[in-house]
Design a protein around this nucleic acid. Structure first.
Lengths: 337, 337
DNA sequence: CTGTTAGCGCTTTCAA
DNA sequence: TTGAAAGCGCTAACAG
């Protein structure tokens, strides 16, 4: 059995209360006692049992992070941002995976609640957020990242998807690019819907209507990107430029392109949401829209910290705040082109 | 305050012990009582407090997963494998980040111990494992993944790095490739050292000595890959083929190649350890050595489960087991070349 | 089959 | 400044 506060108390010949005070840096304790107790703690290699502490204090200093996919650079970079900011507050993070399923999302949330996390950061797996209401019912502070959830109103941090896309396409149209294809994800999800909005808005401003045969929608994974690019390129009159709605679609689409270079119209221009490792190595010039991924996480953590602090103080919680972070255009050149 | 077992007991007009038995599926309880209690639980929306449960039972059914980097596809895919296998055992996972620092590694491990995890899976951040001994001292079941740690003997799951590399290079030499450059990572870490061994062994078998001017070592990140490829390509007599020791170095090296296509010797052949999303989209034919990444995680979880079960039963723990999973060669063609 | 009770390790009044 | 003691929510003897 591990060393407990009792062992320390006995050896130091003080009460457990005193040891507890030393551990918690309580001011009203004599320097000599403190030093003595610390010495014993050191000697016994005592470590607090945060389980017992939490049971008493009803706080765990732990927040849950729930993402639809765990082996996903985007979400894990967000998680990194969350952690960066959490550490400064003495908080830790439990990462869970909802596997893009609302059911599993609920399962994981119940787990997190069982573990008595002080708050939760979620990238929702579905557009509908009814099932998230268990959180508000439990009064658990929550912040959404990347996506909003219909019917579930709470703090959120995401980027300005529409404006980011709009600016990119607008820029390209001004530079003479035209005849755009669109590769999109699940349109029920905030990011994909908004990116499509930005896309059409930019075209509209140039008096261009979206050609429906040049629009492909699917899920947002690599294979879909491949398939949709294939479909576009196999058209009798393929688009001369393509906008791709996220990183994974971009990978898939690029895979198609590099494997079928001879069948690709020369000068095909690719613009894509998200700028990550890959964006530079395709050997294909293009434009990407970079999200401040780390900041999404760290801002979400800050908002959550505020909510948790307010709740601990028994304060009334204010209205939901939705923060939109700006995106940034990144131009990828090849061989100085 | 949340609903507790007491509230349920009161409303159901039974003792807390009975409620506890219902929750834990204790057999010796009448169907009527069980049904009644479950109804009340439902009605009150009661959720067990696993904090209290753990305090009592001294088990958390939680394991820690500690990786040197959290926004890293490789480690997070391992984590995914761990989770896949854990769920079947009713276990959960806390993911922590050691930031490639032994100090932070210790910090996080102490956190995990504070949280009373039942076991730990670690991808060590450094070659030296002295600091990991806090785990064995605490008797905490531990499994290493991807790398071994000097001075810390315990279960581990990793791939056969040397053989994998050997086979790849051997294959290429047989196919007439030659004049290999080597881009490596931190040679104090198991994987990089072993990959180098495999590399030299294959060359030696063909009577070729490694040309030291064609060997570059650094850390294992994207930027290093870029830099080392640059150095090799700027040599008066650059290598005709290059072996790259991991995925991130591969990305960096490829970035250099695509940005400087005109300065790259035609027909430059690239072989690389790790096969991931990007390996297909570089537009560069090549050979990669794929690790069974998910399996590394799931095997590690299985080994850990065994250790935990043994410990819970008070059994003697056997000697450390090091499992080596096989790698697989993947050929990347472009345009049917 | 069910209830009583002690106690997991810690914090926190209340008293001294 | 320190200690005694109650209790956080749950489980597990033990008794009935």
């Amino acid at each position: 059995m591990a060393i407990t506060i009792k062992d320390v108390a006995k050896l130091a010949d003080v009460s457990t209360a005193t040891v507890s005070r030393v551990i918690n840096n309580d001011a009203r304790i004599s320097e000599t006692t403190r030093a003595h107790v610390l010495e014993v703690i050191e000697k016994l290699n005592y470590k607090v049992n945060s389980i017992a502490r939490s049971l008493k204090s009803n706080r765990t200093f732990t927040v849950g992070f729930l993402a639809p996919e765990i082996a996903n650079d985007f979400f894990m970079t967000v998680a990194q941002g969350v952690e960066n900011s959490l550490r400064g507050h003495g908080y830790n993070m439990i990462i869970c995976n909802s596997n893009e399923s609302a059911d599993e999302e609920v399962e994981r949330l119940e787990l997190l609640m069982e573990k008595c996390v002080d708050g939760v950061i979620i990238a929702p797996s579905t557009a509908n957020g009814e099932h998230l209401k268990i959180l508000s019912r439990a009064g658990l502070p929550t912040v959404l990242v990347d996506r909003l959830a219909d019917g579930f109103d709470c703090d959120a941090v995401l980027v300005d998807n529409a404006t980011g896309t709009y600016k990119a396409i607008h820029h390209l149209l001004k530079r003479g690019k035209s005849d755009f294809g669109f590769i999109g994800g699940d349109m029920s999800l905030t990011p994909f819907r908004e990116r499509y909005e930005g896309f059409t808005r930019a075209l509209a401003e140039f008096g261009i209507e979206v050609d429906p045969s040049h629009v492909r929608l699917g899920d947002f994974h690599v294979d879909s990107g491949y398939r949709m690019m294939k479909e576009l390129m196999e058209l009798k009159r393929p688009p001369a430029s393509v906008f791709i709605s996220n990183y994974f679609l971009h990978i898939g689409a690029t895979r198609y392109v590099v494997q079928h270079r001879n069948r690709i119209p020369p000068g095909l221009f690719i613009a894509s949401f998200d700028d990550m490792e890959l964006s530079d190595v395709t050997g294909h010039p293009g434009l990407t829209i970079a999200q401040p991924v780390l900041q999404i996480g760290s801002r979400a953590a800050e908002l959550l910290m505020e909510r948790i602090a307010a709740r601990a103080q028994g304060e009334e919680s204010g209205p939901p705040r939705v923060e939109r972070l700006p995106t940034r255009l990144v131009f990828h050149q090849v061989n100085g082109e």
